[in-house]
């Protein structure tokens, strides 16, 4: 049984150096469709100049993160029913704390580079139990690691609001997860802009669509860094 709702998409628009504005599109949707489906229909039937990013449509590529009614959502798996009501508004904006390329699309280059440099592996051994970091190097089955590099956590973080220098939750979680705290990684994460910058607002864990629990990982990383320093102080390897 399908239902039909009338909803208004209020979409953030910005091109180049022009001032930003919102475009409104009223449309009929099935409330069990996803927020991204509506955006795609707007692009297909109303405005071909609308820019947004997505690829997989099943919460794997991490490209479709946006702000939906003020909250970070992976739009390809966010049902319209969960963010508005019949006759309601869906305000869609690009993620915070990333440079806006155009409309809903943001530049995540720096973020991807940071993920790579802390040794985050997008594909890990099946024996690698993501949630608490068990690792079995013998296992040759592969699986995708939990973090899909969507950037939602960085968009939600209040500390990332004031400076791009803060590495951000996903990157610190990536370092904790890869477990390889070599000197280059330590330079990044055991620093002013790394693990010690977090102020425990836990918004990252709140918005993460993939059970990474980045805030827990930051705390665990702190524990690891502190115990490393204590061991080093007492000369234990």
């Amino acid at each position: 049984m399908t239902q039909t709702w009338t909803v208004t998409y209020e979409i953030f628009r910005k091109k180049g150096n022009q001032a930003s504005h919102y475009d409104r599109f009223e449309m009929k949707v099935d409330p069990d469709e996803y927020v991204l489906d509506g955006i795609e229909r707007i692009w297909a039937f109303n405005d071909r100049s609308l820019v947004f990013s997505h690829a997989c449509h099943h919460s794997t590529c991490g490209a479709c993160g946006m702000l939906v009614n003020g909250v970070e959502k992976l739009t390809c798996i966010t049902p319209i029913r969960s963010v508005t009501k019949d006759g309601g508004v869906i305000r869609v904006e690009p993620m915070r704390n990333f440079p806006v390329i155009s409309d809903l699309s943001v530049d995540m280059t720096v973020f991807y580079q940071r993920m790579e440099s802390v040794g985050h592996q997008p594909v890990v051994s099946n024996g690698f139990e993501d949630s608490k970091g068990k690792f079995d190097p013998e296992d040759d089955l592969l699986r995708l690691s939990d973090c899909i590099e969507c950037g939602l956590c960085i968009s939600a973080c209040p500390i990332a609001l004031t400076t791009p220098a803060y590495l951000g939750p996903a990157v610190l979680a990536g370092a904790q997860q890869s477990g390889d705290l070599n000197p280059c990684v330590l330079d990044l994460v055991d620093s002013e802009n790394g693990a010690w910058r977090c102020h425990s607002a836990y918004e990252c864990t709140e918005v993460c669509p993939s059970h990474v629990d980045p805030a827990w990982r930051i705390m665990d990383l702190r524990k690891k860094l502190v115990s490393r320093r204590i061991k080093k102080f007492f000369g234990i390897k």
Binding site: H199, S200, A201
Partner: peptide
Amino acid sequence: LIKWFDPRNKSLGSWAF
């Protein structure tokens, strides 16, 4: 920094912060 103190659409952890 003004936005640090904006609790709209945020969860409990932000209130704590």
